[in-house]
């Protein structure tokens, strides 16, 4: 019974996170998920300290962070990963200070930051799916480097990432966000989305069953399986590309032309 919920939960994130991960990779903001999750957790701790419901406080702090992040243009001269890292460090430090003052705050905050896939039940899976669907609706429409476009993307991202980290833990979320997209990454651009989704689904199924069979921790085993499959896929893509230099050159020429006409290429679901 526990095995089944774990399998379904990992399949839900295998279907939703790699698509989102491609958008995150093309924007070069990989640390955004950790930053948003930490801001939400710190907001929760603030809520406990101020004796208001933690969920509302977390929503408020996350919304403020979203607006601030959306103010930053994607073509900013600032290194975006460094900004995300700074947001994470700041939020984590505020959280730590609050933790030191709150009795029993530690357990609640740890629970908020580091969920476990073993802890998710059917209701949790439904909630995770609903949030993921809403998040994808906001985050996936056409790329727009305007304040509204960026706000929409970050809002969609936080709707998926924050509940997912709370439900199944930061390890799985970060791995599924980055690894499949990175594995099919080709010549500086996102690869076909179907490839990222396929390898993520295979890793979820194989990893969960392997963990059960070998009596191992499911989160770490699924991530290891995903990493293994991602590396194999990445190597296959690399050697296939190397054996077809003409195709690569054609692609690069097309890229150059499209960049001249439309600006940098963005990945899409129909790749």
């Amino acid at each position: 019974m526990i095995l089944l919920t774990v399998l379904i939960a990992t399949l839900v994130i295998a279907i939703t996170l790699p698509v989102l991960g491609q958008r995150v990779l093309e924007r070069r903001i990989v640390f955004v998920d950790l930053a948003l999750a930490q801001v939400a957790a710190t907001g929760y701790a603030m809520g406990m300290a101020l004796q208001i419901p933690g969920v509302y406080a977390a929503a408020a702090t996350t919304s403020i962070a979203l607006v601030l992040m959306a103010l930053m243009d994607e073509d900013t001269p600032l290194p975006k990963e460094a900004v995300m890292g700074a947001v994470y460090a700041f939020a984590a430090s505020v959280g730590m200070v609050l933790l030191s003052l709150l009795p029993y705050g530690e357990g609640q905050l740890m629970g908020l930051l580091f969920g476990s896939v073993l802890g998710i039940d059917w209701q949790g899976i439904i909630e995770l799916s609903v949030f993921a669907g809403l998040g994808l609706l906001l985050a996936l429409p056409e790329h727009s480097n305007t304040f509204t476009g960026r706000l929409r993307f970050y809002a969609g991202l936080s709707l998926i990432i924050v509940p997912a980290i709370y439900a199944i833990g930061v390890l799985l979320v970060f791995a599924y966000l980055v690894m499949p997209a990175l594995s099919v990454w080709r010549r500086g651009h996102n690869g076909p989305t179907w490839q990222a989704l396929t390898l993520a689904v295979i890793a979820s199924t194989a990893g969960t069953l392997l963990a059960d069979f070998l009596d191992l921790p499911p989160s770490a085993t699924v991530v290891l399986t995903l990493a293994f499959i991602a590396v194999i896929t990445g190597l296959i893509i690399y050697f296939v590309d190397r054996n077809n230099p003409e195709e690569v050159e054609e692609d690069e020429e097309e890229d150059d032309e499209s960049e001249e006409e439309d600006g940098p290429e963005r990945g899409s679901l129909t790749d």
């Binding site: 029993y104 357990g107 740890m110 629970g111 476990s116 073993l118 802890g119 039940d121």
Partner: peptide, 16 residues
């Protein structure tokens, strides 16, 4: 469960 431990897994087991 101890006051400072993650309750999600224990809650899941209890629920199941």
């Amino acid at each position: 469960v101890e006051p400072y431990n993650n309750r999600a897994i224990a809650q899941r087991l209890a629920g199941a």
